[in-house]
């Protein structure tokens, strides 16, 4: 073999770069348990949700987007839930009513999958409410 010095160093660098994900996962200091984040068991659990879990997992953002346009641009505020009851199309008022813990519900998955929705730039999460039903001190948290 010729120019072995350069070529072997080059190949080692190549292998190291390609296997970064593996070594990161195996040796990273802040190694986490492998597996899905556990989602909060809802206090008001039930089958009241507007859509099924299978639909919601991948498509909830589409639904919220749709709701947003319905409400803001078309003034179309209500829909019917699976049990035939009237549901207001509202993230803060409807979804977060059941899924009241943003950290344990939204953030866990979003953080795991590194998704940073900008909903919370404006909308107020129930976790921002403390002590009183109506209003709270909002602590500036990383909204992204």
């Amino acid at each position: 073999m010729f120019d072995s010095k350069y070529i072997i160093i080059g190949l080692i660098i190549f292998v190291l770069i390609v296997t970064i994900p593996i070594s990161y996962n195996l040796f990273a200091l802040n190694k986490c348990e492998v597996g899905v984040p556990e989602l909060e068991i809802l206090p008001k659990a039930g089958d009241k949700c507007v859509k099924s879990r299978e639909y919601m997992r991948p498509f909830h953002m589409d639904l919220l987007n749709q709701w947003r346009d319905d409400v803001v641009r078309r003034g179309d505020r209500f829909t019917t839930g699976p049990d035939g009851k009237l549901i207001e199309k509202s993230l803060s008022n409807t979804c977060m009513d059941c899924h009241s813990n943003k950290e344990n519900f939204c953030d866990r998955c979003h953080n795991y999958a590194s998704v940073s929705p900008y909903c919370w730039d404006c909308h107020i999460a129930p976790t921002e409410i403390r002590d009183t039903d109506l209003a709270i001190h909002v602590e500036r948290e990383e909204d992204n």
Binding site: S90, S92, D121, C122, I124, L134, A135, H137
Partner: peptide
């Protein structure tokens, strides 16, 4: 320390 109204968003 002003209170936020929970059912209405702020703006960005």
């Amino acid at each position: 320390g002003r209170k936020l109204q929970a059912d209405f968003p702020t703006r960005t």
